[in-house]
């Protein structure tokens, strides 16, 4: 089963826009959830699970709204679990694996700074529901940003080992950030119609905010790259995504149509 666009008809663009937003939280939350039980200390484990819970909470708000907009009856779980890989709109950044704690933090950090700026603008959406979700979520994300930035400082300005690891993680993940600011089709329409965020405008502020933390963390300044990785927003994902979805969708795919 797959939810194709024609299921949505009238609100199709808005639903696609909501998915573009929500899939980031869904996939990042899924990755964060992998860490539960395996964190470097109990305290950090608990903190990271809180982030995952915040993200899934946001996902449920977005998906419930999208499901409501869909003409054909569908649920938050249909949207979360029953799309094909090509139908997920999250950026490549959030699906990258938790190679080690430095990658967990770097991924979170690079996304949180974007997420914060994004939600800040989404509060002004002319869609009252999206604006309300943004108002609630931004408090959570403000804390995520603080948590991940603090950890970038600790790892960057900690030991030589930690510095090397977080630097490598930032270097490896930075090429995935450009995509955050390149609107896909639903985003372009959303901007035109006043319910979406003009993300391209956030890029400069994003770079400054990220770089400020990196410099304080005694890490290298951000490189200007010739080439960036993109595709997630158009549903063209990395090879990691298939495995992530196999896990996430396992129950719904193995036992179709059941209630849990």
């Amino acid at each position: 089963m797959s939810l194709r666009k024609h299921d949505f008809r009238e609100n199709g663009d808005k639903i696609d826009y909501i998915l573009t937003i929500a899939d980031n939280s869904l996939i990042l939350g899924q990755r964060m959830g992998e860490l539960t039980g395996h964190g470097p200390t109990l305290e950090v484990d608990i903190a990271c699970t809180n982030i995952a819970l915040d993200l899934f909470g946001q996902v449920r708000s977005y998906f419930q709204y999208a499901a409501q907009l869909a003409e054909k009856s569908c649920t938050e779980d249909d949207l979360a679990f029953l799309r094909t890989e090509r139908e997920y709109k999250n950026v490549l950044l959030v699906e990258q694996p938790n190679t080690n704690f430095a990658y967990v933090i770097a991924k979170q950090f690079l996304f949180d700074h974007y997420h914060f700026l994004f939600l800040n603008e989404l509060q002004n959406s002319n869609d009252a529901t999206l604006s309300a979700i943004a108002k609630k979520s931004i408090k959570e994300v403000s804390y995520h940003k603080r948590f991940s930035s603090d950890w970038v400082l600790r790892l960057g300005d900690g030991t030589s080992v930690s510095k090397e690891k977080i630097q490598k993680a930032i270097n490896d993940l930075w090429p995935f950030t450009q995509e955050l600011f390149e609107p896909n089709e639903p985003e372009e329409k959303a901007i035109d119609l006043g319910y979406g965020v003009d993300i391209a405008k956030l890029q400069e502020e994003y770079k400054q905010a990220v770089e400020k933390v990196l410099i304080e963390a005694t890490l290298e300044e951000l490189p200007v790259l010739e080439f960036y990785q993109r595709g997630g927003k158009k549903g063209i994902h990395s090879e990691h995504m298939g495995y992530l979805l196999s896990d996430m969708q396992y129950m719904q795919r193995t036992y179709p149509g059941m209630k849990w």
């Binding site: 539960t36 779980d77 719904q252």
Partner: peptide, 23 residues
């Protein structure tokens, strides 16, 4: 089973429960 929980509702409940155990 966190990554494989069958619904979003079950997933957050399980995450919160496992987190409680850490607590």
């Amino acid at each position: 089973w966190i990554t494989r929980a069958p619904s979003l509702r079950r997933k957050v409940a399980l995450l919160a429960k496992v987190q409680d155990e850490a607590g």
